[in-house]
Design a binder for these strands. Structure first.
Lengths: 110, 110
DNA sequence: GTCCCTCATCGCAATTCCACGATGGACGTC
DNA sequence: GACGTCCATCGTGGAATTGCGATGAGGGAC
C-alpha cells in the first residue's frame, strides 16, 4: 500500500525568502491557515512520514469522506505545502519541502 | 508610548509538551489557527518586539478598528499565545513565551 | 459627585470554512 | 468496445470568521 513511485522526490526550485514585514506576516498567515485544521496536520504528517501517498491511503487512515479529504488536499496544495501528480488512474501527493522549510523559518522567526 | 510596566515579564509555568499523536495535531492546529490571520501575526510580532503593549498602541499601529483588534487579541489569548492584565484603566498584553515555544517546537517537528 | 478615556462585548452583515453525497472525467483491465 | 476503480469537483447545508459601529463597564482626574 505504500507506493512511492518516482512521482514525488522532485528537485523543488528554491525555498523562497520572505520579503518585507507585512508580506512575511501575510505569508505566514496563509501557511498557518493551511495547517489550521487537525485533519490537514494529520495529512501533512502522513505525507512526510511515508514520502508521498496515494489519496486512497489517506482515506483509509482518516475518518473523513473522500471528498472532504480531497478538499483538504486542495487547500494544502494551494498553500504550496503539498504537490499532487497524476500517476495513471491515481494521484500521488507529496510534501513540498521548500515550503515546509519556509514555514518553519517563519515560525522560528517569531 | 512604549509602556512596559511590571505587568508582563511573568514566570510562565512551563512549556508543556505535546502528548500523543492526535492530540499534538489538534494542538498544533489550534495554535496555527490563532496565527492564521495577518493582523494576528502582526499583533504577535509587535508584542514580542516591545515586550508588552497597551491596546491603544496596537490600534495606532494597525489599520483596524479598536473592536476588531480587541477581538483578535481575544483569539490569541484563548489560544494561550498572549496574556492580558488589567493595569488601571488600560490593559497590558504580552506574549506567553511558553506557548510560543511550544508552537515553534510543534512546527519544527513536522 | 461628574467627565473622559480605555477597552471588552454585543449585535449585525458578508464571507469563508467544513463536511457530506452525488456526479462525472480519466485511466486500466478485460 | 464495456466495465470498474480512483479521484476531483459541484451543490448544499450548517457553523465559524472577519469586520464594523454602538453600547457599556471600569477607573482616573477634577
Amino acid at each position: 500500500m505504500n507506493r512511492n513511485p518516482a512521482c514525488c522526490p522532485p528537485a523543488e526550485p528554491t525555498p523562497p525568502v520572505p520579503a518585507d514585514e507585512a508580506e512575511a506576516d501575510a505569508h505566514l498567515a496563509r501557511l498557518a491557515k493551511a495547517i489550521a485544521h487537525p485533519a490537514r496536520v494529520a495529512i501533512l504528517r502522513l505525507l512526510v512520514r511515508r514520502e508521498g501517498c496515494i489519496v486512497g491511503d489517506l482515506v483509509d487512515e482518516l475518518p473523513l469522506a473522500q471528498s472532504t479529504i480531497s478538499q483538504h488536499l486542495k487547500q494544502l496544495k494551494e498553500a504550496g505545502l503539498v504537490r499532487g501528480e497524476v500517476d495513471g488512474p491515481r494521484t500521488c501527493y507529496c510534501v513540498e519541502p521548500g515550503t515546509v522549510s519556509l514555514l518553519k523559518a517563519l515560525v522560528a522567526g517569531l
